[in-house]
Design a protein around this nucleic acid. Structure first.
Lengths: 242, 242
DNA sequence: TGGAATTATTGACGTATCGTCAAAAAATGT
DNA sequence: ACATTTTTTGACGATACGTCAATAATTCCA
């Protein structure tokens, strides 16, 4: 019994160690830098053992992507639990998204890799389902705040507009901004000195455009951001600042 | 002389044929599907000859990306030349971006592939420079419209906000929306029935948030969109509808 | 506890692809 | 007609993927 559980635990832990070994290879050298042989060599296991855990390279990649995506989802959940006006809560989501990118600047590299059709299609349906459900959960959280805002009359959507449309807008602007930030090497030359700050402001413009109260003009969004970072994400904030 | 030019021309044309052969391989099977051997086999040349044109796989990929990016830039230039209010002209840019995605739905796959660090870093500085200059040109076009809007008092930016901030917002929301549209397989399940339409509306909300006149409420953006498609992009519009 | 049954591990193997380079072929110039 | 330059070729070495039969370790049960 105890022997079994020891072995079982060893196998379990190995899975995590494989992922930890894979991460820097993938981040530093991309898809091609991740080699099953090198993982095996590093961990002193034979290749076959690695394949016992992950049936192909792509499975390792999506497993890593799931880990970071789940971390983001948890940040979103904490942000949504912030006690404040609907506008402050949606603001907290923006802060969570930004903190996530700053804590895991490499996540978007992964996201790019995993979305390549050649990679995505080789992953198992099981893991793809997990990814999709993370995506749905994130959208659900944001959608919930939008609905709350409507319920509290902070926001009124025009006819034919559903909460998901707004969520899609926030999702788009965030994915786009962070993609650009993490892949463009000439933002400063293009006139974007502080991309994260610009992102934050643009999100507010978008919310203003939907008429979400209180509008930017009415409150000091920098102060709100500080408060959220201090109250909701004190630890993460310290990690970023350090 | 005539023999030389014939040979020269043959070599020139071959380059394009290589790219045409590479495109479907890359789109259908991703980075891994693109094989130098297969290109050589298909075109009945030896591998060495292919390598005379492109020093590595990645050069082929970026060459393809440059071709589509240049097409987009030309669409943007035509959109910017639209004679109308600043708001209509920026609207035309949005239409151009949408038309581009619909004409070249696979471009974003390429964009994803090329942005992978492992690929990007293997490309030649020469071609990277071309890509960057395309990017700058696109931003410049949009920035010019923003400046015109300010000059015509259609738009007033708050202190500390520069035109590039707004451009970054439009860029983000577009890149994000199209990335999501081309890679997510559950948009409908997530409640986004007509992503392109939602994108268009979100862009307007963002512009409204910046106070760009006339605001959405004041005019029929669907009519403007129809007019732009008919006047500026009649041919492309037909191609999409067909 | 000892040995059968099950499970986990190993690493050589077949296949595929990359990018190179010396030799062969073709084109060009005199 | 022959020398020089340019282009093409494909065999080659290197690397990596994923498989699988053989081996080792572990578990189970009498």
């Amino acid at each position: 019994m105890s022997t079994q559980s020891r072995k079982q635990r060893e196998i379990q832990e190995r899975e995590q160690r494989i992922l930890e070994t894979a991460w820097p290879l993938l981040i530093e050298q991309g898809y091609l830098g991740l080699s099953m042989d090198r993982i095996a060599e590093t961990l002193q296991y034979s290749k076959g053992t690695i394949y016992n855990h992950f049936s192909c390279k792509e499975e390792i990649i999506i497993a890593l992507a799931i880990q970071t995506t789940e971390k983001r989802t948890r940040l979103f959940e904490r942000a949504a639990a912030f006690r404040g006006t609907s506008r402050e809560r949606i603001h907290a989501i923006g802060s969570a998204a930004t903190i996530f990118v700053q804590l895991f600047p490499d996540h978007f590299k992964l996201e790019h890799i995993i979305r390549s059709s050649s990679i995505w299609e080789k992953t198992s349906e099981k893991r793809r389902t997990i990814m999709r459900s993370c995506e749905r959960r994130c959208m659900g959280i944001v959608g919930g705040i939008v609905r709350d805002a409507i319920a509290h009359a902070d926001l009124t959507l025009d006819d034919g507009i559903v909460p998901e449309d707004l969520v899609f807008g926030l999702w788009s602007i965030s994915v786009g901004a962070f993609s650009i930030i993490t892949t463009s090497d000439q933002l400063v030359e293009l006139g974007i000195q502080e991309p994260f700050e610009t992102y934050r402001q643009n999100v507010h413009r978008l919310l203003d455009g939907f008429g979400w109260r209180p509008l930017s003009a009415d409150y000091d969004s920098v102060a709100v951001d500080d408060r959220i970072r201090a109250e909701v994400f004190p630890e993460e904030f310290r990690a970023i600042s350090a």
